[in-house]
């Protein structure tokens, strides 16, 4: 958490994209992290997007309601690998 804060403090991004394509398993610990980033970006008026979550992380994002807060983007290329 502190590392994420430090990076956001240093970079002051306008928007933030969280690339989950390499993550095969996620639970509510990941939700806390994404919420943290989302709230910080909100304060600065920036957007947060989650990119290419695998099936299991996506179900957790949906179940937690986080999918209503941050946009989830799935690129065609990534999906092609799953088929």
């Amino acid at each position: 958490m502190r590392e994420i804060d430090a990076i956001l403090d240093r970079m002051l991004p306008v928007d933030c994209a969280i690339d989950l394509s390499g993550l095969s398993f996620m639970d509510s610990s990941g939700i806390a992290l994404i919420l943290r980033i989302y709230r910080r970006m909100q304060l600065a008026g920036g957007r947060t997007v989650v990119i290419n979550p695998a099936a299991q992380p996506l179900r957790v994002l949906d179940a937690s309601g986080i999918a209503n807060l941050v946009r989830i983007v799935t690129t065609v290329k990534e999906r092609a690998n799953e088929v």
């Binding site: 958490m1 639970d27 509510s28 610990s29 939700i31 806390a32 919420l35 943290r36 179900r59 957790v60 179940a63 937690s64």
Partner: peptide
């Protein structure tokens, strides 16, 4: 605190 989201039981329930 901030390390947690409070969604654990909700996720167990929904799955």
């Amino acid at each position: 605190g901030e390390e947690r989201s409070g969604m654990g039981f909700t996720i167990m329930e929904s799955f």
